[in-house]
Write a protein that binds this DNA or RNA. Structure first.
Lengths: 253, 253
DNA sequence: CGACTGATTGAGATTGTTCAAGTTCGGTGG
DNA sequence: CCACCGAACTTGAACAATCTCAATCAGTCG
């Protein structure tokens, strides 16, 4: 699996060593996450942070690492500090569908389930804060603010999943591709203004195809069309410049 | 919109009168819901039920009634006592996608949102217990069991939405139709055993098409194929007999 | 440089849609 | 009870969108 231009590569995929895994330090905990006040850790007081810091590990992973496997036991939750995580499901015959992308400061992992219903994989290189299941669930129990935040995240993910069902079920390939670009542009840079956006795609063409329920070829053809119609520019395969958000939105159906 | 053979018709759609709306009585509250111990009300004690009963109304609606509109204010939540509710979203140009079906004893309505992200509509005739937003949210605040149940429902809906994304994005029309029959068969009669199932489709062909991201014609052709292959039998358009769940499952991909 | 991976492009096959008849079902009125 | 009506459903044929297969191109790594 490819890597982003900007990614800090931490060695071969299977070679995660002790140096990548270390206890979080208070008050450094969650420091990496610039938007931490919106995330999980923002809901905790000093005591809880201290408690959490004793049990969490900060983790750096290159792109393409499996965080949890489909139908495997959930041992821990991962708080995303930086990077993009992709959630996918696979049919017996290998057909794959990406069912969600998660960005910082989301929590990765199906709450309260002993078995993960999906595969979570780093799409870009990521930094994670890993919390054992029991620890987080205990914290949730005692902290209404945290509870509410996680409830809100779940409900937001449900809204997003349903929005995406419309895209999958009712939009043409061209509209799907435009929708994805729009989604990524707005998620990677939520408060940007103006008509232009510049970003690196956090996922490969195959991932895009798997997210949109299309083939690589169809995705590619539609990128080309958006490019020749001067709605986007593409350099180095992954680097996207949106020239007109309005026109892109119009193409998204 | 058509009605089920078994539906108790309560008069024309727009003619809901006082007689259809009455305060719930303790201990009759939730009586209509045979599976109430699994639903919301099962999480409440006598005091809470009493409190709830003062603010809820029991409602009977024929098929095809809008319960909440897309982008309209959420005034109340509806607990489903009997029947099926369909959740849908519509694009500006009228293309529609059904994003979920809800069965008793689910709660209808996006928690904590002032605006509903989708349209909720009775698919069959339904009986509902309607709770004002503030009342339910106050109950949730004070009752961990209720809170957990609603959290679990939300998470289950998220799982189901993501499962369906696989169906929408990666399955063929034939597999989609088989998947839907399987979904309905298992939801309407969760604990049945054996290879056969008999039920009435709670939704029209158009609804089915909108759920599967297909056209009516494609749905119809695939029903016919399942019929000629002796996997199902259809009588009176809506009445389905599944002859072999195993073979149906095999067709669902 | 050459091998490799990922992305693009083209041509033909396939799947599902569209449009246009038919047919069946459920209700209504004679 | 039966004939009739409209809505829902089914069927067929032509068409369009997307996929499949194959070739080519571009960038990266050794």
């Amino acid at each position: 699996m490819g890597r982003l231009a900007e990614s800090r590569y931490n060695g071969p995929a299977m070679d995660i060593t002790r140096s990548d895994i270390h206890n979080c330090e208070l008050p450094d905990l969650c420091k990496a996450c610039e938007v931490r006040h919106k995330g999980m850790c923002g809901a905790l007081n000093a005591t809880e942070l201290s408690y959490l810091s004793k049990h969490t590990r900060q983790l750096s992973q290159p792109a393409g690492e499996e965080l949890v496997g489909e139908s495997t036991e959930v041992q821990a939750y991962d708080n995303i500090m930086r990077g993009v995580v992709k959630l996918s499901k696979t049919l017996e015959d290998g057909r794959q569908q990406i069912v969600g992308l998660q960005f910082a400061p989301d929590l990765v992992g199906r709450l309260y389930a002993s078995e993960s219903p999906l595969t979570a994989e780093s799409a870009s290189s990521v930094e994670l804060c890993r919390v054992p299941r029991a620890i987080l669930e205990r914290l949730i129990e005692g902290n209404p603010t945290l509870r509410k935040r996680l409830m809100d995240q779940s409900l937001r993910e449900l809204d997003e999943a349903r929005d995406w069902m419309v895209t999958l079920g009712r939009k043409s390939a061209a509209e799907k591709v435009a929708s994805l670009l729009l989604l990524i542009a707005t998620h990677l840079d939520p408060d940007a203004e103006g008509e232009r956006r510049v970003f690196d795609l956090p996922v490969s063409r195959l991932d895009i195809a798997d997210y949109l329920g299309l083939t690589i070829e169809t995705v590619s053809r539609n990128f080309t069309r958006l490019k020749t119609d001067r709605i986007i520019q593409i350099t180095a395969n992954r680097h996207i410049e949106v020239l007109s958000l309005t026109r892109l939105r119009a193409r998204a159906g």
